[in-house]
Every structure is written in structure tokens, then in C-alpha cells.
Write a protein that binds this DNA or RNA. Structure first.
Lengths: 111, 111
DNA sequence: GTTTTATTTGGTAAATTTGCCAAATAAGAA
DNA sequence: TTCTTATTTGGCAAATTTACCAAATAAAAC
């Protein structure tokens, strides 16, 4: 068996890879509330505009977002809202694990 | 803003990166049914044993799985079952998109 | 003890990703 | 038309990931 030959696995992995970068993950979360102009990302992120543009292209190619040009501006919006549940779920787990770890440390110090 | 400085975003991205490789994604799906011996992966995947072992280590470090040694064998099991819903959801979307694309082609040919 | 079996670790070359700069494009404003 | 603004593209070096081989470890079998 080679999972790389399985179309569905392959495509799913591609989508996951698209949101597996901190900046792109953050972008997707920002888009949860609705479409955003590229300029907003440029204002709020510290990276070079070209870097931001390329991140958005990665999301677009994975099918996670799409965009619409209006005048000089470009607006990106989320196409696969499904990912939001997941991100919330993962974040919840991460947060819980972090709290558990803290509690463990506290108990150790108490003993 | 730099999403790389945000702990939660960072950790979540790490988990996503862990399952963004076709082989590792497939492994996680196999583990949905319960624990599996490394030997099962070795039997069913075409990669080198060392490659498989390293993939499992990536999953372990992301907190997605854990393992237990029993005799000479090592058994891995899923810790973050939450990801299964998501994978199912993404796969569903990918499948639907694929079907839509097919339909579009059919309609074009008919016209 | 030695040998065999199961798995991991170290090392490394090839492939991919990332992020910056400079230049190109696109569209409205002057 | 020329100028300015918004965004993308091309090119490239640095960082990371991947996958193989060979060697190391761990535990049971002999």
C-alpha cells in the first residue's frame, strides 16, 4: 500500500498541508467572520506583502478559499467552512493539554 | 501580528502538519479502529521501516498518538480522536468537489 | 551467553517550502 | 496619459522535510 497513490488521501493531505502553517492557519481563522481584503492581512501581519500573497495563493490552490476582485482590491473568502470546527476542536485539545500539564506541575510542587 | 508567536496557533499548526503527509494521514485513519503494532504498518506500507518509524515519531511528538511496548513489539494508538471527524469532513468535501467536477464535464459534453 | 526479530537512531542527499527583494501587472486617480 | 496604490509574479538563498541506508538498541528465543 502506498497512500501517495490514493487520490482522496492525497487531496485531503494537500488541504491539511495548506492550513498547517501558522500564518495560513491564522488567515483561515480570520476569514471565519467573512471576506477580507488582502490589504487587511498586509496591515495586520508582519511579513512582506509578497509572502502574504503567496500564502493566500496556497490556500486558494487547496480549494480552501476563493477571491473576488473589486476595484484595486482583492477580497478573499472561506470556501471550506468545515475546517473551522476542526480548528476549534484541535485548539480545544491543545488548550486542555496545556492546562493538564500545568496542573501536573502544580501537584508535583505541592508534593 | 505574527501568528508564529501565538502558542495556540503554533501548536495547532504542528498537529495539522503532522497529519498533512499522505502516509501519516493514512496511519491515523488506520488507528481509528484501535491500536496497531508497528509491524502492521511495516507489512502494509511500501516504505523503509526506518521511514515508517520516523513518521510515527512525528505523530507522537504532535500528541496525536502514543505507544506501548509489549515484548518485542510496539503498539501505537490514537490519542486525539477529534481529528477523525475532521478528516471525514475534509474527505467528504474533496469527494463532493470531485463529483461536481465530473458532473460539470458531463454537462459540457452534453451541450 | 549468542542469535534472531522488532524497532529506532544517525547520517545524508534530494525534494520541498519559506520568505525576502525587485520587478511586473492591474486599476483607479489626477 | 502619467501617477499612485494594491497585489502578484519571478528569482533565489536559507530552512525544513522526506526517505533511504547502515548501524544501534531492546527483548525474546535458542
Amino acid at each position: 500500500m502506498n497512500p501517495k497513490d490514493d487520490f482522496l488521501t492525497q487531496e485531503t493531505a494537500k488541504i491539511l498541508k495548506a492550513i498547517s502553517h501558522p500564518t495560513r492557519l491564522w488567515m483561515v481563522e480570520q476569514l471565519a467572520q467573512g471576506e477580507l481584503c488582502v490589504c487587511v492581512f498586509n496591515e495586520n501581519l508582519e511579513s512582506d506583502f509578497s509572502t502574504i500573497s503567496k500564502h493566500l495563493t496556497v490556500l486558494k490552490e487547496a480549494g480552501l478559499v476563493d477571491f473576488e476582485k473589486r476595484g484595486k482590491q482583492v477580497f478573499y473568502y472561506l470556501k471550506m467552512t468545515c475546517v473551522l470546527n476542526f480548528i476549534a476542536c484541535i485548539k480545544g485539545t491543545v488548550k486542555q493539554e496545556y492546562l493538564d500539564k500545568l496542573k501536573k506541575i502544580e501537584n508535583h510542587e505541592a508534593a
